[in-house]
Structure formats: C-alpha cells, structure tokens
Design a protein around this nucleic acid. Structure first.
Lengths: 301, 301
DNA sequence: GCAGGTTCATAGGCATAGCCTATCACGGCC
DNA sequence: GGCCGTGATAGGCTATGCCTATGAACCTGC
C-alpha cells in the first residue's frame, strides 16, 4: 500500500468522480482508475460502485476512509514537523559544563546566547569531565565545555578562550604582598579540589607534582575551596573567571609569574549532525570572552 | 513520501543499526541506506547520526517517529478493517419492502435470514414502490422487494415467488357462498388502497379497469382495508400472504377463478457490488416461500 | 434510432524508482 | 598491518506508475 493510493482514494471519495478526482490529484483518469483498482485488489474490498454517471463509495469504503485520512494527515504532519525542525539552530541543545566553569561562565554567556540563538533551547548540564564525556558519547549531551586537552578520535573540539590561573591567598598570607606568585611557592600549603575535577590535576601539575598535597582536605566544589582559603586554611589556584567570586569572599588574588592557565574548549561527537549549532554556540561564547585572558589578570571580566 | 519509507525509518529507529533493520524489513542494507537518505533529503532533516558503531536517531527523528508510527498503523488498520469487510455476506444490508408485503413477509423470513446469513445486518425499510426505487437509485438502499414488473435498465431483479390474489368478502356478502370468484364480479363494490400502492393498480386492472372504483374510500393501508371489508363496506383483492390476517379479521376468502396474482421480486442496482448478498437474501426468501402459490389458495403458508 | 458526449476500463509504450550484488571508505581491534 | 564491523556508493535489472490513445457502456437529443 502506498500513501499516494490513499490520497487517490480520498480524492475519489470526495469527488465521487474519477475524472475530477484525477484532475485534483494532477494525474490522468486512467492512472487513477488503475491505482484504485489495485488498491481494491490489495485489500479485497470493492471501494466504489461505478456507473456511467458517477463513482459512489461503498459502505465498506466509508468505513475505511477514516483510517486513510489518518494515514495521510500523519504523513503531512511529518512534513510539517520536519519543517520546524529543519533549522539546526533551533530545538533542544544539551550542553555539558564542568563545575569549575559553569557557575562563572553561564551568567556571562546566557543572555548573549539567548539573543544570538533565540530558537535554541539551551539545557546546561553540570558534571565532571569524565561523566560529561560519557554522557556525550551516549548521545545524552549535544556538546560539552571542557578545560582538558584530549578526548579521543570519536570526538572533535574547538578552543574557545584561554583562562589564566590566579594564585588565591588569605589576606594575611606571607606571599600576599608580592605582585606575582611563582606556583611552586604555593605548594607548601596548597589546597585542592576532590578527585575528578580537572582543575585539581592542573593545580597539582602547575605546582610541581603531588608531593606536597598531603592535606586531609579535598574540597568538593570551588566555592567551598574559596571559603577554605578565605578562612586561612591554605592557598590555591583558581581559574580566572572565578576571580570575582574569590574577591567577594575576601581572598587576595595574584597573577602567576608563569602565566599558567587552561584553555576552555567545546567538544562534540565527530558524527554529530548539528555541527552548525555547536559552532554557533562556541562562537557566541568565544566572542563574549574575547580579550578575557588579558583583562583577567586584574580580576575583571 | 511513502509508507514503505516510514516502515524503514521505524525499523532503523528500533534497531539503531541499518543492517539489522534491513534484515527485519526483508531488504538489503544499501536499499535501506538509500531510502533513508532520500527521506532525509525530502524532509530536510537529518534523521540518524551514523558512526562505525551504530546509527543513533537524532532528536529531530524522535520528534517525528510518533507521526510515522501513526501513519503506518493507520495503514495497517485499513488492511485489518478491510479483512472484516471483505465478506459480501456481512455488514449492513438495507432492504426496502412494499407495505402490502412487509408485515406479512417479514415475520416469515426474518428468522431464516438470521440463521442463514448471521453476519448480515438486515435493515428493513417500508415504503411504496416509487419511493423505494428512488432510495435504491440514491444508494440509500441495497435492494428492494417489489411486486411490479419493470424498473428501468439501471436496475436488475430476480423473481422470488408468485403470490396469488384472493377475493376478500364480508361473511354476509352474496358471493360468499361461491367456491371461486370471478374478479369482474367483485367490481361492483370493490374497495382499493390509496394511490401509490402497487396493489391498488393491480386490483383495478384485475377487475377490468377503474370504471367502478368510484367510492370515496381509499384505505391508507392493507390492515385498514381489511377492517373495512370485515365491516361490510365492500370487497377487495388481497395478496395471498395476507390471508391469515384477513381470516383473523373475520373475512371470507375465496380463490379467483383466473388464478390471478403477483410476482414478488428482489431488485438492485446493476452495478451494485455485493450481488452475492442480494442473491443470498433472495434465495432464503424464495426457499421459505417455496410451494406457497399452491398452498395459499387454502389460506395457509 | 443513431450520433455525440458522458462515464470508467483497457492497452501499449516509456521513464524512473526501488531493489539487488559488488565494492568502497572508514574505524575499531587484535 | 590485516581483519572484521559499520554505512555509503555504483551499476544493472525489474517492476511500477504514468501517459496517450482507444474501447465499452450508457445517456441524451435530434
């Protein structure tokens, strides 16, 4: 059976006349006659009582056309729905973001994204890098924002902006008077995040290995870590976008003499079909953060 | 768009794998790939994210498959419904019957019809010949039972049984003593039905023209006419099947010396597709009435 | 009663859509 | 690097759907 046949059927039911129905369908009358006959043979039911005057739908035909109408309109609904879905810059877009980035980046980019991509229904999802990559590979996310470097050949990514690290010190810390800090000087009393946070590993690496990181404290989140630093438990490195929050907590920030930092990327599956959406989102974020790397040293965005 | 394509689409959604979906559809994998690709081109939406591992439905695809399922199941409903409608001996059957026949014939044939054609949903419709033919031609009836001879080339008919006329007399009528009656002897005080009843015209004709039919009374129905005869207003001819009712009314019945009568036929449109149903109904009625012409002279069925 | 205009059905020819097999291209995995 | 898996592509065949032309049945009007 064919949707075309059902359209023919409905046309003949409507016109009760093969010739006029054929004209309405844009085909010749013989075409319609043959196709209707085939349909009758297929379903084993005579659909029309033909005479030299007219083609009257049989009782059986009238019982069937409800279903025929349903099939045809469902097909039309597919076309109509597809038309709305056609724009890759519209629809749901599930974006994974790491926890050390989300609370500081989202407030900056939410409004610009809404303005630049009004049809895109952005759904942020916050989790650590490995969990995000798992969800991305499972098609549960459309793209992720990461601060790490590699994720495998099945994914591709685009760098968005560079984010410098800053030394975060309690106000009364011995190093607080210096204009810049050397990371290795922090190692003595540095505090880090819990396992799984990429920022933890980057902090450890910047400070020259994990030898000194023996403290019992592993902050579950960056805000907690900032509070601990403010309370004088130790020092840490923070990503530049968190500078505002750190200063609000009463923490002294100093640039690193090495200018160490991390690069934030947007990553997605290599086969993901809405690449245009990913790139548009990335572009808006990159534009909003343009020049951030320079300005961030002063603690501003 | 084609229902086949939608079936392919649903199969790939279900299996998330072109090869297995192809096997499920009974076609080759390239066939499926090409058709899905065409569908994507047609609706302008990427339906699957292909990789070397699997074919994952896109968000847009998942929004569309509801409609696709609706279309496919509507098509299947057509097939299923058609299967039930396929038997011409099932379904509604609207049978028109003339008023001088309906009340006497229906009680005889209703049970046999129910038994012989249990799937046939018989709907009797009582009206005079011309109205019945009009409804029949308008496809509002499937067949009609008539006692006249001709109805035009667009209709065909089949004789079912012969029904003799009987002379109906008040018990105290001068002719009541005779064993048989000559129709022309009835003409003096004969009563007839209202215009439109075929029995009226047949009575007039049997009694030798309308010369004597000057009475003001034109009974609207046969039971009324019987009551008038029983009350001594005059005589009449009745169809054999009404013998029982006439005797119950206290009327004397006598055979006609000419053995005049009428033939009851079933008629239907020449193009009517359920000829088998018409013939089956006719056959049951004819079988029930077999031998009636002989027995009817004695007032029995 | 027969010509002319309906109706739908049929026949023959043509284009193409759909299918198959064979093969390619890519990626993952020993 | 070879091997298996995935889906995509190419070429050839067939069936199907379409057209025009024609036929058969029927009505209508002269």
């Amino acid at each position: 059976m064919n949707l075309r046949d059902l359209r023919y059927l409905l046309a003949v039911v409507e016109h009760e006349h093969f010739g006029r129905a054929a004209k309405a369908c844009g085909v010749s009358q013989p075409t319609l006659s043959v196709q209707i006959r085939k349909l009758e043979d297929l379903i084993g039911v005579t659909l029309f009582e033909r005479s030299s005057k007219t083609a009257a739908p049989t009782e059986a035909c009238l019982r069937l056309i409800g279903h025929a109408r349903a099939a045809v309109s469902a097909a039309e609904a597919i076309i109509a729905t597809a038309r709305n879905l056609r724009d890759p810059l519209s629809g749901r877009f599930r974006l994974g973001i790491i926890p050390t980035l989300a609370p500081y980046l989202l407030p900056l980019v939410f409004a610009p994204l809404r303005q630049a991509l009004p049809q895109l229904d952005l759904e942020p999802w916050e989790d650590q890098t490995s969990a995000l990559l798992e969800r991305l590979r499972a098609h549960e996310l459309d793209a992720v924002l990461l601060a790490t470097d590699e994720d495998g050949p099945d994914l591709v990514s685009l760098p968005l902006f560079a984010e410098p690290f800053l030394a975060a010190l309690p106000p009364d810390h011995p190093l607080a008077g210096r204009p810049e800090i050397l990371e290795t000087d922090l190692a003595r009393d540095i505090l880090v995040l819990a396992d799984g946070h990429c920022l933890r590993d980057q902090t450890v690496e910047a400070c020259g290995g994990d030898a000194a990181l023996s403290g019992p404290l592993r902050a579950a989140s960056l805000p907690t870590l900032l509070n601990m630093v403010a309370a004088g438990y130790g020092t840490t490195l923070i990503p530049g976008l968190a500078a505002g929050a750190a200063q609000d907590a009463g923490i002294v920030l100093r640039p690193l003499s090495t200018r160490a930092g991390r690069t934030v990327r947007i990553a997605w599956r290599a086969h993901y079909p809405r690449r245009a959406a990913v790139e548009a989102v990335g572009e808006v974020i990159a534009a909003r953060l343009k020049g951030f790397a320079q300005g961030a040293a002063g603690g501003m965005v």
